[in-house]
């Protein structure tokens, strides 16, 4: 039986302010109660709106996983690619349609597990992509297997006695591979995360934002950490903000302090800048740069 709360009747007429950016026919989404992924989507949608970018020129690419479903809920050109392949797909998209803002939103397992090789090379090339990685320290969708981000000692379904591997520290991985913008926030840092996404939208090159997110159903349950709300309280009590921190000092240990902030913000030539320069110098007038508006297919 449905019992409406006091405010429901009036609210039914008003739609949520982010509705124009969402595929509302698919809402409610599949994510578990108190999962953090939806909050990241809200922050991304808000940042897009505030940035004033032309939404017809924005595309979102996701891989596979719970986080990989993000592209399917945004009312933008979106691509749900195969597992780990969001970055090469996005790279092709950007090279063929350089006028687009290409965003990759996907999970830790997808982007730095199976897709780890693509990750370091996209960063190395300073490929002009905005990458938002939702890090819940685990493979959520497939049942809580150990991820390259699982902190030491944390349990996962494949490390039932605790993880003994050394995890990646993602800001350090991105920065040392060549990313030109690197930040980390948690799902609780809604305002800073939104600002950071908005700021990164206005920049060029490989822009990497890690968002620590609760996975109550697997990571928290296997580690007896409670609900998503408990995770939010944990972030509230233990996250520290240290903008400009040395990325070598950003490891995450099990249930210990999470350092957040913007760590790298440099303007370096992107892959396309370097390519155009190189061939421009080499070939002079004979060089035809990647077509701008319309992309490859619409040339001539």
């Amino acid at each position: 039986m449905t019992v409406a709360t006091k405010s429901t009747t009036a609210s039914q007429e008003l739609e949520h302010p982010s509705a124009p950016l969402l595929r509302m026919e698919r809402i409610p989404h599949v994510w578990c109660p108190s999962c953090g992924i939806g909050t990241v989507v809200k922050c991304y949608a808000t940042a897009l709106e505030r940035s004033g970018v032309d939404l017809d020129k924005v595309s979102v690419v996701s891989g596979i996983g719970c986080s990989g479903r993000v592209a399917g809920y945004l009312k933008l050109d979106g691509f749900h690619t195969t597992h780990g392949r969001a970055l090469p797909f996005a790279t092709g998209l950007k090279l063929g349609r350089p006028e687009l803002l290409v965003t990759v939103i996907s999970g830790d397992g997808d982007l730095v597990g199976i897709g780890g090789n693509h990750f370091i090379h996209a960063a190395r090339r300073n490929m002009d992509l905005l990458v938002i990685l939702i890090n819940n320290f685990i493979y959520g969708m497939t049942g809580g297997q150990n991820a390259p981000t699982t902190p030491q000692q944390a349990r996962s379904s494949t490390m039932p006695f605790g993880n003994f591997e050394t995890p990646f520290s993602l800001p350090h991985l991105a920065a040392s591979s060549g990313a030109s913008y690197v930040a980390r926030w948690t799902c609780l840092h809604i305002r800073r995360l939104t600002w950071s996404i908005e700021e990164a939208i206005g920049k060029r090159g490989f822009r990497f934002i890690e968002v620590i997110a609760p996975c109550p159903t697997l990571y928290a349950r296997l580690n007896k950490l409670g609900s998503g709300l408990d995770a939010m309280r944990f972030y509230h009590d233990t996250a520290e903000i240290r903008n400009g921190a040395d990325t070598r000092e950003l490891e995450i240990s099990f249930q210990e302090k999470i350092t957040c902030g913007k760590f790298v913000d440099e303007d370096r030539p992107t892959f396309l800048d370097l390519m155009h320069n190189h061939y421009g110098e080499l070939l002079g007038d004979r060089y035809v740069p990647t077509p701008r508006e319309g992309g490859m297919l619409h040339e001539q």
């Binding site: 709360t5 405010s7 429901t8 109660p33 108190s34």
Partner: peptide, 18 residues
């Protein structure tokens, strides 16, 4: 004026807490 779309909610309590 706050509006709640009650049937869409999954009861996480984030809004109440913060």
């Amino acid at each position: 004026d706050v509006h709640i779309l009650a049937d869409r909610c999954k009861g996480c309590a984030f809004c109440v807490e913060y």
